[in-house]
Design a binder for these strands. Sequence first.
DNA 1: GCTACTGCTGATATCGGTAACCCAAACCCC
DNA 2: GGGGTTTGGGTTACCGATATCAGCAGTAGC
Lengths: 339, 339
Amino acid sequence: MDAAGKRVGAVRMRDVALMAQVSTMTVSRALMHPAKVSPDVRARVAEAVSAVGYVANKVAGSLSSSRSKVIGLVVPSIENSLFASTIQGISDVLRRHDHQLMIADSGYSPEAEEAAIRAFLEQRVAGLILHDTTHTAEAVTMIHRSGVPVVENGTLTASPLDMVVSYSNHDAAKAMTLHLARLGYRRIGFVSLPLATNERSRDRRAGYRAAIAEVGLPEDPRLVLEMPPGLASGAEALLRLMEGGGEPDAIFFAGDVLAMGAILECLRRGWPVPGKVAIAAFDNFDLLGHLVPPVTTLRLPRLEIGRRSAEVLLDRIQGRAAGAVSVDLRFEIIHRGST
Amino acid sequence: MDAAGKRVGAVRMRDVALMAQVSTMTVSRALMHPAKVSPDVRARVAEAVSAVGYVANKVAGSLSSSRSKVIGLVVPSIENSLFASTIQGISDVLRRHDHQLMIADSGYSPEAEEAAIRAFLEQRVAGLILHDTTHTAEAVTMIHRSGVPVVENGTLTASPLDMVVSYSNHDAAKAMTLHLARLGYRRIGFVSLPLATNERSRDRRAGYRAAIAEVGLPEDPRLVLEMPPGLASGAEALLRLMEGGGEPDAIFFAGDVLAMGAILECLRRGWPVPGKVAIAAFDNFDLLGHLVPPVTTLRLPRLEIGRRSAEVLLDRIQGRAAGAVSVDLRFEIIHRGST
DNA sequence: GCTACTGCTGATATCGGTAACCCAAACCCC
DNA sequence: GGGGTTTGGGTTACCGATATCAGCAGTAGC
C-alpha cells in the first residue's frame, strides 16, 4: 500500500498469461469455462496461477461482465438472534453456489433501510433479500428501476415488491389462539411487539383477533397489550395484564423474548404455570423447551426461510425461473407444559 | 435484464454529465469532493442526479481507484448468538463511516475460512476481520501478499497476523476460577467447549489450570470435561461431573449455553444452586441474570470488540495509523446468586 | 479437392468510473 | 501591472477483467 491507502503491485491476469504463454483471454476462459480450453493450456494456466499467486479480481470482472455474485441482505437488527437462523440459511445456500453475502441492518427504520438498499445497488448486487415489508417510496423506485430481483421474508405480505418467502404471521397467531381456546382457556391475553413500524406485529394481532371472534369470545381491551421488546418488558407485561382487571387465564406472547421474560417472572414469584396463568410464545427459541415448565410455542421455519429465499433468488438470477414467486412455509404448534 | 441475466440500460454518470452540461469528471468531483466544485455546478449536478435517478456504480469506481469500502468478516458460525453482538458493533461503526460489510461463516473449519478469505480478497475488500486465530498456511500467505489489513478478535493471541482486538480468555477464566476459590469452593469443576480447533477454549482451560495451581488446589481429571456446544450438552456435563466421583462443589462452564443447560437441569431436578453445587458461566448471555437463581458469569466486551475492531481497521485503511495494534479489552466478573 | 463445420486461441473494444495532468480565468501582493 | 498562486473545470489515459468477432488448424462429408 502507498501512503494514500492505494494497493500496489498486485498480480494481474496478464502476469499469469505471460507465464503460461497465452493471452489474457485464454486465462480468463481457463478459469471461467475450463471446458472451452484445451487440457494442455488448462494445465499451464493452473500452474502459472499458483506459481505467481494470482487472486482473481472480481471487481474488474463484474464491471466488464455486468454481473456480480454478491447478494445484499437487510435485516432490522443483527443482534436479534431471531434473524440469525435465517441469515445462516441464506449463507449456507449462497456459499454452495459461490455467491457472497453483504449484510446491513436498518434498526427497524425504513429510512435506514433505504440507505442500505442504495448502498447495495451502488455495489451492483445481483439480488436483494429484505426482511421488512414496508419500504420508503424512494426505495421502491430505486429497486424497480435497477431491475434487481428481490425477496421479502418478514411476512406473507399481500403486495410484495417481487418475490416473497415466509409464513403467515396472521395464520400462525390465529392458530395458536384457537389452540388455547380449544384447551379451554376463555380469557386469553395477547402481548405484541410495537405495531407502528412492523407489519409482522400487526398481522399477529389481527390473527389473534380473528381467532377470538371465531370462537365467540368477547374482545376485552384489558387483555391486549403492546410492549417494547426485551426480557424485562415481558415480565412487566405479565404483571400489567395480571393486575389490569382483565383476569386472564392464559397469555399469548407474540415474541419469544417477551414470553421468556414473563415465564421467568412467574418462576421468581413462584406462580404456577399454567396453574395461575398459562403462557404461550410465538417463536421456537431453543430455551423455551428447556424451561420449567417447557413453554408451548410455534415452530417457525426460520432456517428454511433463509434457504428458500436464497434459492428462489438464485433461480431468478441464473435464469432458471421468472415471474412472481410466493413461498408459503408452514409453521407448527408445539404443545408443551405451560398451557 | 436480458436473457443472460445481464442488466441493461442503467443510468450512467455520463447521462448526469450531459444533463448538467459538464464533464463526467466534474460530476465525479461534485459527488466525491463537493468542496472542489463551484456551488453553481454542484447544484446543477445534484439536480441532474435526481432527475435521471442516478445510482453510482461503485464497482467501476473501485476498479478505477483501487479502493473499496467493503470489509470482510469471517465468523465461525452466524447462527451462534455469541457473535451477533460483535457483528452488530462492527456494523454500527462501518455504517457511520459509509462502509459495507460482507459476512461469511467458516463452520469452525480453517479450510472453509481460507475459502472465505480468498473470496473476499477476490472482491478486493479494504480490510478483513477474522474471529478465529488459527488459519491455514495458504490463507496466511494470501493475506500477506494482498497487503490487506486484518483484525483478529477471538482471543488475545500471541502471534497475530496483524492487529488484534480482544480480551484475554486465559485471564478471564483464571479470574473466575480464583473468584470461586475465594468464595470458599475447593472442588471446582471445569467444562470447556471443544479444544482442537479452538484457541479460545484452550486459553480458557489454561486459565482455569493456572488458577487451580495458584491457590494450591489439587488437579483432579474427574473435574474437567470437554463437551460439544448446546443446551443438552450442558445438562449432560453437569450429570457426568456430579456422578463422576470428583464430587465438585462448584462447576465453571466455559460457555454460556452449557451453563444454561446445566442450570435448567438443576431446576428440573430440583437441585438447589448453589446448595448442591455452585454454577458459574463464561459469557454475558442476557438470560443468565434472569434465571432463578441468577447466574454468576463474566461480562465480556462483545459489542465493544466489534466496534473497536472496525475502528482500528478503518484507522489503518484511512491512513490515520500504521503498525501493530493490540487492544486488550477488559472483562468483568458479575457475581450473582448461583455461587 | 473443396466446402462446411468444429475447436481452440488471440486482437480489440469496451464496462463506468477516477487519477493525473493541463489550461484558462481570477486573484494577489508588492 | 506583471509574475505567482489559487480555483474550477476539461482531456486523456488508464484500472483489470470479459464480449465479440476474426483467424486458423483439423476433419468430416461428398
